[in-house]
Computed example of a mutant assay.
Amino acid sequence: MAAPTLTEAYVRHTLNWLNRWEDEGAKPVHDEWRGLAHGVGEQASQGGKTGTFMGIDEDFGMLLRTQEGTTLVPLTTLLEDPS
């Protein structure tokens, strides 16, 4: 497949999902992502917390099960500057 054809296909696919998100909210994107998620049920560390990766919430925050209970690591944690 030629690079322009691949790029066009990627852009169409991305725009389709952005339009669905805008029209229907995050649920369809969330549902599709859950089927693609790797590592659910495995140990994970994020945002200074370690536990079992349980998936994501409706706002795409990471759900970690720790000894204290289920903890939410907001998606914005990945965007924050660690310095």
Rank of each mutant, 00 (worst) to 15 (best):
L15V: 12
G41P: 08
E8H: 11
L15G: 00
G55E: 03
T14V: 15
E68S: 12
V73Q: 01
H38D: 09
P74T: 10
G39W: 15
Y10R: 14
A37I: 12
A44I: 03
S83Y: 07
H38F: 07
E42C: 09
S45M: 10
A26R: 03
W33G: 01
R20G: 03
M1K: 05
P4H: 13
R20Q: 05
E22M: 12
A9F: 06
P82A: 01
N16D: 14
T5A: 11
A2C: 13
V73S: 01
T71P: 03
L36V: 06
V73T: 00
G55I: 01
T7L: 14
G69M: 14
L72G: 01
T76W: 07
T7V: 15
S83L: 15
L79Y: 04
A3H: 08
T70P: 03
Y10F: 14
E8N: 11
T71H: 10
L75S: 04
R12L: 07
T77Y: 10
V40C: 10
G35S: 05
M1S: 07
G55A: 04
P74W: 02
T70C: 02
G35H: 10
Q67F: 07
P82D: 10
A3N: 08
M62I: 14
L78E: 08
T71F: 12
V29D: 02
F53P: 03
W21Y: 14
W21A: 15
H13E: 11
G51H: 00
T7A: 09
M54F: 08
R65C: 09
E80M: 15
V29I: 11
K49T: 12
G51N: 01
E32A: 15
M62A: 06
G51E: 00
P74Q: 01
E58K: 11
W17P: 00
H30G: 04
A44E: 10
W17G: 05
V73Y: 08
T14P: 04
S83V: 12
